[in-house]
């Protein structure tokens, strides 16, 4: 074989290996999610594919686990609680986080790095320590076993997502636009709502979606602070997994996968909208 042909062969082999490796890692990342979806339609209460499923026999599939959710008032209460808590805490986190991020993005912010570190810290502090501290403290002021207590806890945990996304958005924001607005006679409030807000809205919405997803998936503070009236979807799943894992859990998981895919698509579309395709250097 001639020299160039050999090199060409080697390049092809290398490319094949690297593609194979990448496919394997993607398989590791995605297979667990992909497997849940068909299994949630299993007609039998098993966690493996029955022979009927493998031959695509319609008898092997059923919606019984989805009917289980629909007929169980506990799941309905959990969905209601999750939505109420996630929407309230997202709202609070977005308002507080956006204001703070605007302050952090200004060049005259004193001790910026220090405050930034404090505001992001709920992301890295071990959740058991945060939840344990809240448990004692909120109990002493009567907030344990209330919706408000969990909303405040989830606001705390959602704040870093808003701050991170918003400071990143604002770092690309041209402050001269505000100066231009005020030179044209806009007062600071008008300039904020008519100039700043429309420009940073995509970043703000992504941050809010992150905070929403974080609250919607949070279980540890609910375990510490919540009573029977504050059971959320993750809390229901938690006891489902711990006690007797039933295929109903798989049906819920499938619905959550669909839901989070929609959230992800929303964030990705916001990103496209925010960054013009030519400058998509991330």
């Amino acid at each position: 074989m001639s020299e160039p042909a050999k090199r060409f062969d080697r390049a092809r082999i290398e490319k094949g290996i690297s593609t194979g490796f990448a496919v394997a890692i993607f398989f590791f990342l995605l297979a667990p999610l992909a497997v849940i979806i068909p299994l949630s339609f299993n007609a039998e209460p098993y966690f493996t594919f029955t022979s009927k499923m493998l031959t695509l026999d319609p008898d092997g599939f059923s919606l019984r686990w989805y009917r289980d959710i629909a007929e169980n008032p506990q799941w309905f209460q959990a969905i209601g609680n999750s939505l109420l808590i996630a929407i309230s805490s997202t709202f609070l986190a977005t308002v507080l986080g956006t204001l703070a991020a605007i302050g952090l993005a200004r060049s005259n912010m004193p001790f910026r790095d220090f405050f930034m570190a404090i505001l992001i810290s709920p992301l890295v502090v071990p959740i058991v320590i945060a939840a344990g501290g809240m448990y004692f403290f909120y109990s002493s002021i009567g907030l344990a076993q209330t919706h408000l207590g969990i909303i405040l806890a989830h606001t705390t945990l959602g704040v870093p997502f808003v701050v991170i996304t918003m400071t990143a958005t604002l770092s690309g924001f041209d402050r001269n636009l505000i100066k231009a607005a005020s030179s044209l006679g806009a007062d600071p409030i008008t300039a904020f709502f008519r100039v700043t807000l429309p420009l940073v809205a995509p970043g703000m919405i992504s941050g809010a979606l992150f905070a929403f997803a974080a609250s919607f998936d949070e279980v540890v503070t609910v375990l510490f602070l919540g009573g029977p009236d504050q059971r959320t979807i993750p809390r229901q799943m938690w006891s489902g997994i711990r006690e007797q894992i039933s295929p109903t859990i798989l049906a819920v998981a499938t619905l959550l996968i669909v839901f989070s895919s929609l959230l992800l698509l929303a964030v990705e579309m916001l990103r496209r909208w925010h960054t013009p395709p030519s400058a998509s250097g991330r």
């Binding site: 993607f26 990342l29 999610l33 497997v35 859990i249 998981a253 990705e268």
Partner: peptide, 19 residues
């Protein structure tokens, strides 16, 4: 495809691993 598991509920992913 990398972000999809990132966004998926932690409890869902743990469930899948148990399964």
């Amino acid at each position: 495809l990398v972000l999809l598991p990132f966004w998926t509920s932690l409890l869902v992913r743990t469930t899948s691993w148990i399964v």
